[in-house]
Design a protein around this nucleic acid. Structure first.
Length: 457
DNA sequence: TGAAATGTTGGGGCG
DNA sequence: ACGCCCCAACATTTC
């Protein structure tokens, strides 16, 4: 009996329900990845690079089991039935995902293939964490309480006596940038081990921008080189820091569950009354934001970090997101698309969930009147300016006080630091206090058109 | 997982 | 000793 395991966002063999089931049920297994060229070119350079690195890592794991990873280029809807036919497979396994695109695609495939769909990308699958009424909570804290109390299933494990199908091995696209990401699940476990040395300090350090206080595991969770429930299990609950981090995994599950239930939230406000907001059309402002030229050092630092590395510190994601939506009054969907293009860890459910949180349009989101002051936040979370100087080097000569807000620094001090506003660093593209009033007015007008019903579509 | 505006309190300088 | 003012520090309200 020959089974196919279709890998997607679960690029690992450990704690992988689809892989475990196939190796238990079949004598021979074909490990398949289908590279949809359209999806690949939609990804920014860093995500392309990471995908190739992780596919090579998965191939290495499979070689140790005597086989190879098979990579096919094309649309899964046509490729998968072809491969199943070619290898004579009786059954296909994969781990399901919650994005509308994947749900539609997988449902279509499930109608024409003998298959089993597993869950391997979340701690708890959609539907496993419900209120007493049997619904998905619209508020995070009760969701979290139930999530935390929900027991994890027994973990399936792969059996060793299966033959992994050989084939020429993956023909992988060349990537534009040299591979700097260590691919594969073993490298991912080393990164997890690295985080375990820091996790007890997580709550105290995660918001400090100049130190590595976060897990830095988001991309491994995105590609599935780490199993989220294995991570949750290893981190455990012994200390505040550990519980604080695991709580973040609950946010991740919650956003996935929400998108599974509300596929339209990719383009519509989860609170429909906020669809009435009249956004500004400001291509120049959007461009300045994208390229880190807003004149607000903390915003520019974050946007440059994103472009340079495919990563951005979570707090800075909130600040840059708030700046686009609240200060520039630009539609959150534009920012969501830009982030999704560039982020290594880009995932429709997480990205959309977080952007709707920032914009105040989601469930249990930041209230619309919560407007981050970029300068205040910068002083608070990067007091010594280490993060700013790293990503906005033209301001590096300013002292710790001035570096957060060059626009109000005395001309002599600017000159001494080699800063020429409007020349080598921009003037602020917007006045924050004016922008704050403007966005509060715009949101209030939207709510006046469509009074708050408190309901999700 | 805010911040600004407004209100309250109390210490200290000063006449 | 007293009233007055200033203002930092904190609390509350508001968006």
């Amino acid at each position: 009996m020959h089974h196919v395991v279709w890998f997607r966002r679960d690029l690992r063999l450990g704690d992988n329900p689809a892989w475990a089931a196939a190796t238990q049920q079949a004598d021979e297994v074909t490990a398949l990845f289908v590279l949809d060229p359209a999806l690949f070119t939609n990804a920014g350079p860093h995500r392309q690079e990471a995908l190739v690195a992780h596919l090579r890592g998965l191939d290495t794991e499979l070689r140790e089991r005597g086989g190879r990873l098979r990579v096919e280029h094309g649309k899964p809807l046509t490729v998968l039935p072809q491969i199943v036919d070619e290898v004579g497979a009786g059954h296909v396994h994969w781990n399901r995902d919650t994005t509308p695109y994947s749900v539609t695609r997988d449902d279509a495939l499930a109608r024409q293939l003998s298959c089993t769909q597993h869950w391997g990308t979340l701690v708890h699958e959609p539907g496993a964490v419900l209120t007493q009424k049997g619904t998905l909570s619209k508020v995070f804290t009760p969701f979290y309480n139930t999530w935390y109390a929900t027991a994890m299933h027994a973990w399936p494990t792969e059996t060793g006596d299966v033959t992994v199908a050989a084939n020429p091995g993956p023909g992988l696209p060349d990537v534009a940038t040299p591979l700097s990401i260590e691919g594969g699940e073993q490298a991912a476990h080393r990164r997890l081990g690295d985080f375990m040395n820091r996790v007890d300090n997580y709550l105290g350090q995660r918001d400090l921008l100049a130190v590595v206080g976060t897990s830095m595991l988001s991309a491994d969770l995105r590609f599935g080189t780490l199993s989220p429930r294995e991570v949750a299990d290893i981190v455990g609950e012994q200390t505040e820091g550990r519980r604080g981090f695991v709580r973040q995994l609950a946010w991740r599950d919650w956003y996935a569950h929400l998108l599974y239930q509300h596929p339209t939230m990719t383009s519509q406000a989860l609170k429909p009354q906020y669809n009435e907001i009249v956004w500004r059309d400001d291509p120049a402002g959007f461009d300045a934001w994208k390229h880190g030229q807003t004149g607000f050092p903390i915003i520019d630092a974050g946007m440059r970090e994103l472009a340079a590395t495919g990563y951005m510190h979570n707090r800075v994601r909130m600040l840059t997101g708030s700046f686009l939506v609240k200060d520039l009054l630009i539609d959150w969907r534009l920012g969501e698309r830009w982030f999704r293009h560039l982020l290594l860890d880009a995932d429709m459910s997480q990205n959309v969930g977080n952007w709707q949180w920032v914009a105040g349009t989601g469930t249990d989101a930041a209230p619309y009147f919560r407007v981050f002051n970029p300068t205040t936040q910068s002083r608070k979370f990067d007091p010594a300016g280490g993060y700013l100087r790293r990503w906005v080097p033209e301001l590096a000569g300013l002292d710790d006080k001035a570096v957060h807000e060059p626009s109000i620094v005395a001309p002599l001090e600017l000159a001494a630091a080699g800063v020429v506003l409007g020349d080598n660093y921009p003037h602020p593209i917007v006045d924050h206090s004016m922008a704050r009033e403007r966005v509060l007015t715009a949101y209030k007008q939207a709510l006046a058109i469509a009074p708050d019903s408190g309901d999700v579509q």
